[in-house]
Structures are given as C-alpha cells and as structure tokens.
Nucleic acid binder design. Sequence first.
DNA 1: CGGGGGATTGAATCTTGTCAACGTTGGTGG
DNA 2: CCACCAACGTTGACAAGATTCAATCCCCCG
Lengths: 248, 248
Amino acid sequence: MTIHEKVDAPMQCGSCPIRHRAVCARCEADELAALDAIKFYRSFQAGQTVIWAGDQMDFVASVVTGVATLNQVMEDGRTQTVGLLFPSDFVGRPGRSGSPYNVVAETDLLMCCFRKKPFEELMARTPHIAQRLLEMTLDELDAAREWMLLLGRKTAREKIASLLAIIARRDAALHLNTPSGRMVIELPLTREAMAAYLGLTLETVSRQMSALKREGLIELSGKRTVIIPDYEALMIEAGEDADGGLPA
Amino acid sequence: MTIHEKVDAPMQCGSCPIRHRAVCARCEADELAALDAIKFYRSFQAGQTVIWAGDQMDFVASVVTGVATLNQVMEDGRTQTVGLLFPSDFVGRPGRSGSPYNVVAETDLLMCCFRKKPFEELMARTPHIAQRLLEMTLDELDAAREWMLLLGRKTAREKIASLLAIIARRDAALHLNTPSGRMVIELPLTREAMAAYLGLTLETVSRQMSALKREGLIELSGKRTVIIPDYEALMIEAGEDADGGLPA
DNA sequence: CGGGGGATTGAATCTTGTCAACGTTGGTGG
DNA sequence: CCACCAACGTTGACAAGATTCAATCCCCCG
C-alpha cells in the first residue's frame, strides 16, 4: 500500500461522525455549506508526521478519526507531548502561519482540513464558528492545566492511571455514555508515546503498567488492549477528585 | 490598615496601564464606555485568596497591577500552580459559573472586574471583545504547553532558570523593551510559590537558587530582588531555544 | 524460520524529596 | 530601645522514586 495523503471527500457533513462536537458544531445549514466549500480530507498512517514544528501551515483541521499528538522537542532531543488529539479536536491557530509543535499521527488518522485564508475570512463573518472555537480553546486550556498538575505532582503510578482514565473517558464519550465499571479500551499510543505524554521514560511506563496488572487494576490483552475491571478503582489510583474531571 | 476589597474606581480606561493589552485592547470608544459601565475595581493584599476553587464566581476580571496565581490542589494537599497572572491577564471563563482553580494574590493586587452576566451579553454583540479573548486564550494555551515541557522534561536547575527568564521577560514587556544583558527583577513569589509553579519542593528551589548564585548566573539582593548579570547566559541554563519563546 | 520493532525486566546510579536543624529578617510589645 | 517571635529561607543527611544502561523477551511480518 502506498502512502497517500489527499483523499476524496469521503462524506457529507451531515453524516460526519464529529458533526456535533467539532468546530462546526454550532453551524447552521448555510454556514456548513460554506465550510464544505473550503474543506478537503487528508489521511495519514500511524507514525507519520502531519506538521513539522515551525513549518508553514496553510490549513487548519479537525481530527475526524484516529489519534494524534502535539509534541515539543528541546534542542538536545528531550521530547514532551503537550496535547493528545481525539476525534473532533482542532489543530492549528487562526491568525498564525506556523505551528509551534510537531503534530504526529499516533494511529491511522483522518483529518478534515480547511484552507486557512478562507477559513479565517469565514470565521470573521460567522460568529458561530468563532464562539465554538473559543469554547473549545477554553476546554483545551483546562485540559492542559489538568495535565500540568499531573506532570508536576503525580507519581509515575498515578500518571499511568490518569492516562488510562482519560482514554477510557474519551472512548466512552465517543459512544455517548459515561465511564464506569468494567471497560475495555484500545491504547492509541506506544509505550514510548505514553512516556512522552506523561513526562516519564518508556521503561518506567512499562514497569508501572506491569505493577497495575500484577495488582489486578488492569488486564492486558496484547500490547494495545487494556481491560479495566473497575473504572472507579482506577480513578482512585489516579489520585483525582471524585468527579474525575467531568465537564462542569 | 484594614483589609479592604472593593475600591472606588481609581482611573479612567483611557489612562489604564493595561488598556492596550487586556481583553479590552481592541475596543472602540463606545465599546469601552459599555465596559466602563459594568466594571468595578477590587484590591487584594498579598496572600489573600481572590477566588476559591468551586465557588460561584459572578464576575470576570483583568489583572491591573500585581501578580496572582491559579492553583490546583489534590485531595491530599499536593498543590500545583497552573497559571501565573501578570497585569493584563484575564481571569474567569465566560459561560461557566465556577472557577476550577484557586486564584491567589501573590503580591498586592488590583483587579478590574466585570459583572459576568452583563459581560457575556456585551461579548455576544461585541466581536472585538470575543476576538481579543480568543487571541488571549490561545496565547495562554501556548504558555501552558510551554510549561508542560518544563514540568515534564526540565531539570530543577533549568526550571529555576526558566522561571527567572519568564519573569524577566514579562517585566521587560511591561516597560515595552526586550530582555537582554544585565537585568534586575523583583520576584513576585515566595520560594514556596516558586516551588508550586515549578513542580518542585521549596528546598530544591532554595538549593538551585544558591547554586545559580554560586556560579555567578544570578545575584541576590534581599530575598526578592534578583540581579541577572547576563540574560542570554541564563537562557542557556534554561535549556530554551535561541528565540526564547518570543511572540511569533 | 529469522528478523526486527516494541515491550519487559534487572541492576546500578542519580536527582529530587523528606525530615530536621539552623539562619535571617522584620514587626511587636514590654 | 531591645528582646522576642513568627515567617521565610538556607543547609545538611538520608531515603525514595525515577532514570540509565543493558539484557532479554515477545510477536508480527516477510
């Protein structure tokens, strides 16, 4: 199979799986038509870099399916993942030409892209888009701050438990239910990518995964499938408040 | 002296020190007048809590003078500062009633507050405010992600150097010049508050400050005044790219 | 069947945290 | 005016947690 990026528009906005959650969520039919006119799809294979830090970026985009990460790299190579992008999450900043981060496809990825210039013009006269983008950005800011608590204060064990909880939560949200009890999740990340997001080394991630397994808090089926026998018990290990960061 | 919070409006917007940088930066005269009608000032003493996490919050606000922090606290007491608020920075989230964070005055603080309900209404019909707020929120998100790199990957020494560099940068920005060469800065934070922001203990902060002093990278004059003989040299210790995170 | 990327495990090391003592400073009241 | 107190800061000794380096394992794919 060849690596292909541009793909034919695979769908109508009306049947788009992220129609009601993405940046276009609040749009009326006519606004959606305007977006539709400037949109195109791109797909990426797991491991491909979507955008290199500093590169010119002539589009903004929504994740349709798959998972991507935002990464910041220091001169000596130390890498920190600063954002985990699930379906409906937005990439790119209107009014700025380059991305400050590497955007990497962690799984096979489908993105709905809008050419930047037309998107900005459309945004200027479409409050519904600007409103939704502000709302989403504020949510991302809250998520980033939650992650600062994790990076600054949590133990390796709590970090792992928190990550699993977040993935379980996003997974549940995709199916429109709330996380609880027994859950089965698919890890979209390698151990190395988990480590990059958690501010750990991959060895520490592996050890803590093994520890959680030994203690029955998780079960592993293959390397990427995790069974959570008791979501609430895992939340306690994550050291989070009772509400577990559910939307206010 | 008694602790007083509400204060008489000490100034006209026209002579406000943050007029051109705050959420009102893009407002025209008439929009400013509308904001003026719903604004009031509150002052806080160093150490006072401005807002408790979870509390109802009937206003949003801009920092006019002084420095405040946003803090997140775990059930067992571990605390992480997730935001450092300088003059012109914005507090509060339109469309949400409670703050998820403690907001603490680290120095004496003056805030320009807007009653939330009228502010939201005004925002709905004043694109200049919403635009500016989106821009500021995106900047804060970038800053939060920069801080995630610090918390996840930098050494204690690099963390301290980074914090000093950031304070120097904000300090320079207030006086509209770029940081370089010899600088004298006033720390708005105690060692404990520095530790809370850096994901360290106060002892480690103290030790690394001493180490930087021993090596001539900083000089201390009292506990709160820091002399940076060579800003560029300090930036190297901070492990940052050459540009040092200057606005794109 | 063999190769290779990802994952696991072990042992030694190092950074940072913890606990405790001591120093410094500024304010208060005798 | 001075002594005392409390808050903040510094320093030291030790312990704990995470990293580093290295060996080995496990699958999946050709």
